[in-house]
């Protein structure tokens, strides 16, 4: 299990290559990449603030829960902070399990929890200034299914 919180970009391809493979007990690997999206067509950049110390602990706790609940052979979470532009990768998760149902479910669980339980805050910068992204009720609702 690995958790990384970093400002610098990561190489999604290199992280996926070999993840969860090479053993005898893994039949499914799911990987997810989150990318900065520009819904209004005016996003210049995004800045992600986080809570150093708590961020790593919160993600490790979420990843550990996923690992035990779906009996994962491996979990990887990388989340960036700092300035990012549209099209750039923000974060990734990877899960390795015996079967695909567990690998997919664990990846979705990780995504839902990272959205509203890991201490990150996004601020969007556009032509009219900067605005903090508000949490959505949907994000909180998404946790109830787990």
């Amino acid at each position: 299990m690995r958790v990384r919180v970093q400002a610098e970009p990561f190489d999604y391809g290199a992280e996926c290559a070999g993840f969860g493979q090479g053993g005898r007990d893994v039949g499914a690997v799911v990987t997810f990449l989150g990318v900065v999206r520009d819904d209004k067509g005016t996003l210049a950049r995004m800045e992600i603030e986080h809570y150093p110390g708590m961020t790593e602990k919160a993600i490790a706790a979420i990843a550990e829960e996923a690992r035990t609940r779906w009996n994962l052979a491996d979990v990887l979470v990388i989340h960036r902070h700092g300035a990012l532009v549209p099209g750039e990768a923000i974060m990734m998760v990877a899960t390795a399990a015996r079967h695909r149902v567990a690998a997919f479910a664990a990846a979705e669980f990780l995504m839902d929890y990272l959205k509203s339980r890991a201490p990150f805050w996004k601020k969007e910068f556009g032509p009219d200034g900067a605005e903090w992204v508000a949490a959505k009720d949907d994000d909180e609702d998404a946790l109830r299914r787990w």
Binding site: G34, I48, H50, Y51, G53, M54, K57, A58, H79, I90, M91, M111, L114, K115, S116, R117, A118, P119, F120, W121, K122, W132, V133, A134, A135, D139, E140
Partner: peptide
Amino acid sequence: VALDQELSEFSAPLDGVREVAFFPPMTGG
């Protein structure tokens, strides 16, 4: 609110707490 880097409640006691953090709902992912 987080107490010593764990999410908590506004009704929670501060006994032995060293670090309190206040922030809006998180928007990671």
